[in-house]
């Protein structure tokens, strides 16, 4: 899976550089998020700007990250959701769970 991780003002931004986030590749994002939280990162932004398609496995990995962050008093925010991805969050009501921003910059400004 093509992931790029950057640190910005103490917040780690994970760019998911894939067209699909599904059962075939989402475990790699889960490992990356687990690694970040286990090594002391508190606040993470996952940027999905390049993701055109997400399935229940991809959503599940983000829920896992949310729970992981919550238990460590950290945060996980999402940015750059395309229309189809956004509609999957709405269908599963997860748009009420996550803080979702249009861009990484918007997410960084709302610390």
């Amino acid at each position: 899976m093509n992931l790029k991780t950057e640190s910005n003002k103490g917040i780690v931004v994970v760019f998911v550089r894939e067209e699909r986030l599904d059962a075939n590749n989402s475990e790699e994002l889960k490992s990356e998020l687990n690694h970040l939280f286990e090594t002391g990162t508190k606040d993470v932004i996952v940027d999905l700007k390049e993701v055109r398609f997400i399935d229940s496995s991809g959503l599940g990995v983000l829920v896992s990250g949310f729970k992981n962050a919550s238990t460590r008093q950290g945060t996980i925010k999402l940015s750059g959701l395309q229309t189809q991805v956004k509609s999957m969050f709405e269908l599963t009501r997860l748009h009420r769970v996550f803080d979702i921003y249009a861009t990484v910059d918007d997410a960084l400004e709302n610390r």
């Binding site: 229940s56 829920v63 896992s64 949310f66 729970k67 999957m88 269908l91 599963t92």
Partner: peptide, 21 residues
């Protein structure tokens, strides 16, 4: 159906719900 309560979220269990929807 999956639990929609943000306080008791499950990682799994959304696939069949999505198909049915």
């Amino acid at each position: 159906s999956p639990c929609f309560d943000p306080g008791s979220l499950n990682e799994k269990g959304r696939g069949i719900y999505i198909i049915r929807s």
